[in-house]
Design a protein around this nucleic acid. Structure first.
Lengths: 143, 143
DNA sequence: GTAGCTGCAAACTCTTTGCAACTCT
DNA sequence: AGAGTTGCAAAGAGTTTGCAGCTAC
């Protein structure tokens, strides 16, 4: 098992430019916010951080931009049992462990589980296309 | 690995009565709808089915009843990447495979995965409290 | 120049809630 | 009788959208 490291490679800004998106001032700011995020920010959070860099940015633009990036698979929309979406700039396949006390999110990857998921789907007569695995846990304190 | 069979045991109506809930006409109908459901109905669906049995039932009552049952752990609120909730009368621990073409939901249980989840959480320094595993797949057609 | 992007405000969807009337127990 | 439940309509939260103006290319 391994933690996923923060995705490196070309920045979101670069990848968006490559995808032929018009690079407006607002868009650059939002992409920078996502690139610099070490967490899985909610739309509201992206908005706040973007607004701190450019007062003129509107919520509508944040929503539109995040939807666009999600469609292009440049970010991943997450839904951790909350009534709003979070966004993950790490598009590599991985899962999440959510600390139910602090809300902190840890990413992980596990090959054995990947295998088993496929096998389970196959035994039920399905080809596995997507999947979602979230662990909710409490930090173990070593006394 | 095994499919979970439709939970038997005492009916929801019985378990609610045991829990000391006032058994109004509307509540009985909603509980009957849930007891008879072979699927994972959305709130809207529960409402429609209940309304077919008693025209007077309101959406507000359906929401209030489902929230109440969820709090008492007599049903489980599910959220399959849709922008509304579904409810599952099967409160035994299990996971779901969702057919991305038909929307059909298959329940399954797998002891190996249960073990691995706990182990992964432990290795990351957490005690596993809850979890959610959803497989999204396409039916394999045997030609 | 123009396709595409933006801010604003209004609209939309799902869900919750205040209130007065009603109903199980 | 009284605590708990109900229907209605209004309010809330999160998200989307129509529109006129603006901007990157």
């Amino acid at each position: 098992m391994s933690h996923s490291s923060t995705s490196s490679g070309p920045s979101l800004i670069q990848r968006c430019a490559d995808a032929g998106l018009k690079m407006t001032g607002q868009r650059k700011i939002i992409l920078r916010v996502l690139d610099e995020a070490e967490d899985h920010p909610a739309v509201e959070t992206v908005y706040e951080r973007a607004k701190a860099l450019d007062e003129s940015i509107s919520m509508a633009t944040v929503y539109r931009t995040l939807n666009l990036l999600d469609e292009l698979h440049l970010v991943v929309r997450q839904d951790f049992n909350e009534n709003f979406s979070r966004y993950d700039k790490n598009t590599d396949h991985h899962h999440h462990l959510i600390d139910i006390e602090s809300g902190e999110v840890v990413e992980f990857q596990n090959d054995e589980i990947e295998q088993m998921k496929k096998e389970i789907a196959r035994k039920l007569g399905y080809e596995l296309i997507e999947c979602r695995l979230e662990l909710y846990g409490k930090k173990i304190r070593k006394n």
